[in-house]
Design a binder for these strands. Structure first.
Length: 219
DNA sequence: GCGACAG
DNA sequence: ATCTTGTCGC
């Protein structure tokens, strides 16, 4: 599939932040509610600055694997909270461009709207591809929230500066919640429903687990 | 003001 | 992210 280059690569924190501030205006918060093909994305770090990006496409109904690709690259930016996306974006884009099918939903490892400037990795990937995208975080980042109830499916809103930017979602009984936020072309209800459905067996959604495994053990 | 801060 | 043992639960 094709990915759009909507901006030059930033060479400073200020440039990176201004790119986020500009692209934020392109995010759409409504979209489809069903997805024929869902893709999970993840990056594995090794050595000083080497990264392996993996994208795994699953059948949206059966969750059977349809296609998987990996790309090797280098960390493209220093780690700065809020600018995390710039580290792995180039390698993730390389991997996406090797896909022979176009997914209908990107399930990203990180945040979307629940981000200091409202433009996390999931928003960035969504806008560059034009595809619906959502973010799944494993630890709280911004905003405040109450712990959700212990049962699978329980959730509480994540509030930040007077707005709801995501949800803490319990995907398995008695297991730490995950943090769901919108990336692009998806509602918060749909994002929550998809993550819950894709995480029927484990804490993390199946596409992210597959991508994580592939990035660690490239075939 | 200072520290903490997705992966 | 990654460096790492043992322990608990399914």
């Amino acid at each position: 599939m094709q990915v759009r280059r909507l901006h030059p690569w930033p060479s400073s924190v200020a440039e990176a932040e201004s790119i986020q501030d500009r692209l934020r205006g392109h995010v759409e918060l409504t979209g489809p509610t069903e997805f024929a093909l869902v893709a999970g994305l993840d990056v594995h770090y090794h050595g000083d600055d080497a990264v392996t990006a993996a994208v795994v496409v699953l059948d949206g109904g059966t969750l059977a694997p349809v296609e998987q690709v990996v790309a090797e690259g280098r960390v493209a930016f220093p780690y700065v909270p809020g600018l995390f996306a710039f580290r792995e974006l180039p390698t993730l884009i390389d991997a996406l461009e090797r896909l022979t099918v176009t997914p209908d939903l990107l399930v990203c490892d990180g945040y979307g709207l629940a981000h200091p400037r409202g433009f996390g990795l999931a928003c960035h990937l969504g806008v560059l591809t034009g595809l619906p995208a959502l973010g799944v975080g494993k630890t709280p980042f911004i905003g405040t929230h109450e712990p959700p109830g212990p049962e699978r499916g329980a959730w509480t809103p994540i509030a930040h500066e007077g707005a709801t930017v995501g949800r803490a979602l319990r995907t398995q009984r008695g297991v730490k919640p995950v943090y769901v936020s919108q990336g692009h072309r998806i509602s918060l209800d749909t994002a929550t429903g998809q993550v819950l459905r894709l995480a029927a067996r484990f804490r993390l959604p199946e596409p992210i687990r597959h991508a994580d495994h592939l990035a660690r053990h490239p075939s």
